[in-house]
Amino acid sequence: KLATQLLVDLAEGCHTHHFNSLLDIIEKVMARSLSPPPELEERDVAAYSASLEDVKTAVLGLLVILQTKLYTLPASHATRVYEMLVSHIQLHYKHSYTLPIASSIRLQAFDFLLLLRADSLHRLGLPNKDGVVRFSPYCVCDYMEPERGSEKKTSGPLSPPTGPPGPAPAGPAVRLGSVPYSLLFRVLLQCLKQESDWKVLKLVLGRLPESLRYKVLIFTSPCSVDQLCSALCSMLSGPKTLERLRGAPEGFSRTDLHLAVVPVLTALISYHNYLDKTKQREMVYCLEQGLIHRCASQCVVALSICSVEMPDIIIKALPVLVVKLTHISATASMAVPLLEFLSTLARLPHLYRNFAAEQYASVFAISLPYTNPSKFNQYIVCLAHHVIAMWFIRCRLPFRKDFVPFITKGLRSNVLLSFDDTPEKDSFRARSTSLNERPKSLRIARPPKQGLNNSPPVKEFKESSAAEAFRCRSISVSEHVVRSRIQTSLTSASLGSADENSVAQADDSLKN
């Protein structure tokens, strides 16, 4: 292990032709098999893994070397290190390495390699500790012929580059190093199909959405987006994914797998022009299946994007999809995704031109529960009313008269009656009930004795009459309010007539 670390330190600071010789020695160290011998017992696995620490030291050392060589000349050094790393990870899946030390190597290698970024000039870069990406002036992410390196360097940008540029090249004859992302992409596909350690798979799935944002990485080298989509959909639809995973937390289920895969599918929607129609349908189907899991909100957001990006695919699945959405409970976490999906859909009339009455009724059935102001915040309630109004205007004229009683009944049950079921009123009724029952229970537990009763009969009569009056008032709060309003209006009217009579009498006395 110490000798391997010494080789790594020497290679990191070497800029001459001896660098390749040092890498040859490190490569021989990495070539050791990580498969346990067949006769190895389970209690000896930890000791055997400790004997392979030099392999881990070599791989982690290459990660440090690549981070240094990416910004220094010659660029061919970075290319050689990158290829060695990718080849080593491929061996893991070729020979099915399952030892804990092998999983640790893959975890740290993917953690580093999935941080690679590219700008519009195809320059590769890595983020620093502050998250700012520094791009290399010597390494690009696409394949290029050595003699055409300078031509590639002087080509115009596709868009303004992001991030601070690296140091300027030493001279005009500098050759750019090619670090094609397709090599890593193929290893990522192998990981999605064969990885057995949940920690490694979770890391890859968590980092892929951010990497897919940099389309330069994908399009400048032959990366098959179709295969990526197929691998992701197979993970969700195939039963073998959960069987092969180990190291998963207790209670791990298909729902947890959906939570990890759906963000990658959402990021892949922007590549729909490069996906086969069959793959697009598979993607939409997987998102529909996710509606029954805890990732339902993410799936609804993804389907909203699909309705804009892939209208030809979503239009066929939309009638059944809208009916499925009615089975989702009206909760605060689902309110905004569902209502925004319906609001977006209302502005795309070509998608729902074939809707029948059942689909329009489903839209109103989804939106009406969110009009309850005692359960949802003001934004959700306003958005629900907006969706109902928009869809009522957009639905066909023959359907409107049939939906009017349905909508008014839903609004009455969710908006008007919600004020009668407020917690304050319920607590008031509970308190009044307890007050009504309390005197009775006290009389049963403690019967009054005439000799020891010091309270006069008049006081008892007053208290009983007050309790009886309170019971009468607490029967119905709404009736009490109505009666008080009527009494107030009658009182004001009587006072007004009394004032008029007094004024008339005063005038008569003055005349006399």
Rank of each mutant, 00 (worst) to 15 (best):
S159R: 09
G238F: 06
S103H: 06
E195A: 00
L63Q: 13
A118G: 04
R106H: 00
K193C: 12
P74V: 01
L203A: 12
F185V: 03
S230W: 04
V86M: 07
S182F: 06
V216N: 08
M235T: 02
E151K: 12
S150L: 11
E53C: 08
S150Y: 09
R123P: 02
T220G: 06
R117C: 03
Y71K: 02
Q227W: 03
T154A: 13
E151M: 12
G206T: 11
L205D: 00
C229S: 07
K129T: 11
S103L: 04
T162N: 13
G163W: 11
A231D: 05
L192R: 00
S211W: 04
V55Y: 01
S87E: 11
V55G: 01
Q67R: 13
T72E: 09
A58H: 00
G163F: 08
R213I: 04
G149V: 12
E250V: 12
G61V: 00
I89N: 00
K193L: 11
P249R: 07
A231P: 01
F252H: 03
C139K: 02
V187M: 06
L189I: 13
E250G: 07
R207I: 03
L201T: 01
L60K: 13
A75T: 10
R207Q: 04
M235S: 02
S196H: 12
G238I: 06
G156Y: 13
R207Y: 04
L176Q: 11
S76F: 06
S237K: 07
L183D: 11
Y138W: 13
L158R: 08
K153D: 12
K129P: 08
K240C: 12
D54F: 03
V86F: 02
H92W: 00
I89H: 00
C233M: 07
T220D: 02
Y71L: 04
E147V: 12
P222M: 04
G156C: 09
H122T: 03
V55N: 01
V64K: 15
S155K: 10
A75K: 03
E151P: 11
G131H: 05
P127S: 06
G156W: 11
A75P: 11
I218N: 02
V204W: 00
P249E: 10
S230V: 07
S87G: 13
L217G: 03
L236F: 06
V86W: 03
A231G: 04
L73S: 12
C233A: 04
K56R: 11
L176T: 09
V225E: 01
T220F: 02
L126Y: 13
G61W: 00
Q194T: 08
I101R: 01
A231K: 02
L184S: 05
L228C: 02
L62M: 07
Y71M: 05
F219W: 04
A75Q: 06
V216H: 06
Y138L: 04
G206F: 08
E145G: 11
K56E: 13
Y93E: 01
G125I: 02
L183Y: 11
N128Y: 05
S224R: 08
K199V: 13
H77D: 06
T79I: 12
S49M: 09
L126H: 05
P165D: 04
P165A: 14
D197I: 01
L70Q: 01
S155H: 12
P161L: 14
L183G: 15
Q227K: 10
P160H: 13
S103D: 14
L232C: 06
M84S: 08
V140C: 10
V81G: 01
T241I: 12
A58I: 00
S155M: 13
C223T: 04
R117K: 06
S51Q: 12
C233W: 03
C229M: 04
T68E: 09
G125D: 01
E83R: 12
L189P: 01
F185L: 04
V81F: 01
P157S: 12
V132I: 12
L115S: 10
K94I: 11
R175M: 13
Q67V: 02
T57F: 05
S96W: 06
A78G: 04
K129A: 13
C141F: 02
S120R: 15
L73R: 12
L52I: 06
C141W: 03
Y71G: 03
H95D: 11
L99M: 08
S87I: 04
Y181D: 02
R246I: 08
C141I: 04
S178A: 14
K94W: 06
Q90T: 09
G149A: 13
M84W: 01
L208E: 01
Q67F: 02
L183H: 12
H88R: 00
A75V: 11
Q67C: 04
L208T: 01
L228P: 00
M144W: 13
S211G: 05
C141E: 02
T162P: 11
G166R: 15
S224N: 10
S76T: 09
S104N: 10
T98S: 11
Q194N: 11
I65P: 01
A58N: 00
E147C: 11
V200I: 08
L212W: 00
Q227I: 04
R175G: 12
E145I: 07
E147T: 12
G166P: 10
A78M: 04
R117L: 01
L217H: 04
L217Q: 06
L201S: 01
S76L: 07
S51F: 04
G238S: 10
G251F: 04
T162M: 13
K56N: 07
A78N: 01
I65G: 01
L91M: 12
S51Y: 06
I218G: 02
K152I: 10
V59C: 06
P239C: 12
E83Y: 09
E53A: 09
V133Y: 15
C229D: 00
A248K: 13
C223F: 02
V81S: 06
K69C: 02
G163A: 11
A78P: 03
T72G: 06
Q67K: 11
P160D: 13
L63D: 02
C141D: 02
V132Q: 12
M84Y: 01
G251D: 08
V179W: 04
L217M: 10
L66N: 01
V133T: 12
A78E: 01
L201Y: 01
T68L: 04
G177T: 14
T98C: 09
Q194I: 08
Q190H: 08
L70M: 08
Q67Y: 04
G125K: 02
L228V: 03
V133N: 05
Q194D: 13
E145Q: 10
L205K: 00
R117G: 02
S136K: 01
L99G: 06
S76P: 04
L232P: 01
P180R: 06
V225S: 02
K69N: 02
T72Y: 06
M84R: 03
L217T: 03
S237H: 11
G156H: 10
S96E: 13
A75N: 05
D226L: 02
R80M: 05
G125Y: 03
P239A: 09
S87P: 00
P239H: 12
Y214A: 06
L121K: 12
K153G: 11
G156I: 11
C191K: 00
L203W: 04
D130W: 08
R207P: 00
H122W: 02
L242V: 14
E250I: 09
L124I: 14
P249W: 04
E53M: 08
L217I: 03
L66V: 02
S155Q: 13
L236N: 01
L73V: 09
I101Y: 02
S136E: 02
S237R: 10
P239Q: 14
F219A: 10
K129C: 09
V140Q: 04
W198P: 03
L91H: 10
R106A: 00
D197E: 10
E83V: 06
L85W: 00
G247L: 05
Q194E: 13
W198I: 01
L217E: 02
Y214N: 11
P74L: 01
T241G: 05
A50I: 07
F135D: 02
P74E: 03
T57K: 04
V187K: 01
Q194R: 10
V132W: 08
F252T: 05
V64W: 06
T57R: 05
G166M: 10
L205E: 00
S136G: 02
D54T: 01
P100W: 01
R175H: 13
L183P: 11
V59H: 02
C229L: 05
L245D: 02
L176H: 12
Q227F: 04
G149T: 13
Y214V: 04
H92C: 00
L236M: 10
S150I: 13
V187N: 04
T68C: 10
R80C: 03
D54M: 01
R175L: 13
L245S: 02
R123F: 04
K129Y: 10
Y82R: 01
A248H: 08
L62K: 00
P137I: 03
L245H: 02
T162R: 12
L85E: 00
G61F: 00
D197Y: 03
P157I: 14
H92P: 00
F252W: 06
S49T: 08
A75Y: 06
L115Q: 10
K56C: 05
